[in-house]
């Protein structure tokens, strides 16, 4: 994990007087970033009787889980759908990306340097430009309205970013190693298994986290490709917010529940998540 780490530990740094004053703007920004989280949590903990739009900033009088329970009852099947969709999608995506990255970085074939940009373009397309064919196609191959269909779509539209991440990572494996292996007569699979796979854990972490969050957070594909039985949590949440029959305090609690898995990933694996983001930026 050398070149994927953008940050380098500084040896010694110039530190100017009064720099602690800079904490003031940082703390102000902290408030800005925490406000929505505050509202989400505080509203969720209020009892039904206590909830009112006009007192939304007040702290809860007691500690009530009514809202979370109500939201969980509504969202539980959809949280389950999301997990059943996201976990396979993330794992398959990372395997596909690893193989692609390996070939394009270190086991090239004539014309392989054309393949990367052609794949990468898929990362940026606005999905509105493929939505009609996608809906029609998935319907016709019988995968619309199902979780496997959604997994397939996330894996395919994940190919560019996963390939790019592994490509960038494998480029740091010295090519002399590969050449030596080739000369020793190692085949493609041998080289992949014995040289690349063993050092791939960090890249796998990055890609799995990235795919996990982006598939979890997806709305557009889910809304067109799943029926209400199979809705992942984003669609169910939006539906809950749109229907108005469910009070806004429950919506708040629901939105927190929908955010928990990605927040957990972020809290525990944030550093690697950050690296995944950097890879998404290509290398400037």
């Amino acid at each position: 994990m050398t070149s994927t780490t953008a940050a380098r530990s500084p040896k010694r740094r110039f530190r100017f007087q009064g720099r602690y004053l800079l904490l003031i703007p940082l703390l102000l920004m902290t408030i800005f970033y925490l406000l929505p989280l505050y509202i989400m949590l505080v509203t969720g903990f209020k009892s039904f009787a206590e909830v009112s739009l006009q007192t939304m900033w007040n702290l809860p009088g007691g500690f009530s889980l009514e809202n979370y329970i109500a939201a969980f009852e509504k969202l539980a099947p959809h949280l389950k759908n999301s997990l059943m969709m996201v976990i396979p999608a993330a794992i398959i995506s990372s395997m596909v990306g690893s193989v692609n990255g390996f070939v394009l970085a270190r086991w090239r074939f004539p014309g392989s340097n054309l393949v990367l940009p052609l794949l990468l373009f898929g990362m940026f397309i606005p999905y509105q430009s493929i939505l009609i064919p996608l809906a029609v196609f998935m319907k016709n191959i019988g995968l619309a309205g199902s979780i496997p269909g959604l997994i397939l779509v996330h894996v395919i539209y994940g190919i560019p970013i996963t390939t790019l991440t592994f490509y960038g990572y494998y480029m740091t494996v010295p090519k002399e190693l590969v050449e030596a292996a080739r000369i020793d007569g190692a085949g493609m699979f041998g080289a992949y298994r014995h040289i690349f796979l063993p050092v791939s854990a960090p890249a796998f972490v990055v890609v799995i986290i990235w795919q996990f969050t982006s598939a979890w957070n997806d709305f557009l594909f889910a809304v067109i490709l799943t029926g209400n039985e199979n809705w992942p949590v984003t669609v169910a949440l939006q539906n809950m917010a749109g229907s108005q029959i469910i009070a806004w305090n429950v919506q708040m609690a629901g939105s927190f529940l929908a955010a928990v898995p990605t927040l957990l990933v972020y809290i525990f694996l944030g550093r690697y998540f950050l690296r995944g983001l950097m890879a998404g930026a290509l290398k400037g």
Binding site: N217, D218, F219, L237, S255, A258
Partner: peptide, 9 residues
Amino acid sequence: FPMAISFIV
């Protein structure tokens, strides 16, 4: 952290 959250949320 907001980056980890869905636009819907």
